[in-house]
């Protein structure tokens, strides 16, 4: 007789096993970031890859989001005569939420996928095995520099995104909505609190860690040639995005309470 609970049990065990494997990977990744040898050359290379080369896409995203946000808040605020709050809500929305989340999502597509594809290809072409035979721990050489670089660079990118996003809102407010530029900027800076910036940067660091660990995990465990690398890349993007959105809520709730 077929046990109807068996398939459900198999799925649950499979999911729990995957969570366990990922947790062990994350623990090893975090430990590798601080255990010598630290490959500084690899770290700087990843900083350029994750940080510097992501700047254009993050900047473009931020400027358009800031501009659109200003327009929407103006329209919404006009319904109860609160148009003057555009600068306040733009800066709040960007620093606390949209800056880190959109930067995280853009990097999930750009960086997490890239990491999964690169490490995955190295796995299926035996380059990771080769590294182990050359007395070099692939975890410290490949995973740790990526995790460190993403965790440290994403907050810097978010600072840039915040500034560019606020400027996007400023340009629309001043040029299309006829705000006074000086008053707009004064309201922005007066309203902004250090707690808003800390929340945004905390999120950014956590999102950077998620992006690098999920990408590395998927790549490191990929198998089955090009098909496996493709699957790892897709899983890295989807996994990073879901985790970023879930963790974003948890961090926000923690700071609000």
């Amino acid at each position: 007789m077929i046990n109807p609970f068996a398939p459900v049990g198999r799925v649950v065990i499979g999911v729990l096993a995957e969570i366990g494997r990922f947790a062990a990977f994350v623990g090893r990744a975090a430990a590798s970031c601080f255990a010598p040898p630290i490959f500084f050359g690899q770290f700087w290379r990843q900083c350029a890859q994750v940080g510097y080369f992501s700047l254009p896409v993050i900047g473009l995203t931020a400027v358009f989001i800031g501009a659109a946000l200003a327009l929407n808040i103006y329209v919404g605020g006009a319904r109860f005569n609160a148009e003057q709050f555009v600068p306040n809500i733009v800066v709040l929305g960007i620093t606390r939420e949209l800056g880190p989340v959109l930067a995280g999502l853009m990097l999930a597509g750009r960086v997490s996928a890239g990491i999964a594809a690169e490490i995955g290809t190295m796995r299926v072409t035996e380059q990771i095995d080769a590294m182990a035979t050359l007395s070099t721990d692939p975890f410290r050489f490949l995973v740790a520099p990526r995790v460190l670089a993403a965790t440290l660079c994403l907050p810097l990118l978010v600072v840039a995104a915040d500034i560019i996003g606020v400027m996007g809102g400023y340009l629309v407010a001043v040029n299309s909505l006829h705000f006074n530029g000086v008053i707009y900027l004064r309201n922005t800076f007066q309203f902004l609190e250090s707690q808003d910036v800390i929340l945004g940067l905390t999120k950014a660091a956590v999102f950077g860690f998620i992006i690098a660990t999920v990408g590395s995990y998927q790549g490191y465990n990929s198998q089955g040639g090009a098909l496996g690398v493709g699957r790892a890349t897709t899983n890295a993007v989807v996994g990073s995005i879901v985790l970023i959105l879930a963790v974003n809520y948890l961090i926000t709730a923690f700071f609000v309470e």
Partner: peptide, 14 residues
């Protein structure tokens, strides 16, 4: 393992 050297099938060059 420092005593080992290995030639992989596809070369496995980085």
């Amino acid at each position: 393992m420092r005593k080992f050297g290995m030639l992989f099938q596809g070369g496995a060059l980085f």
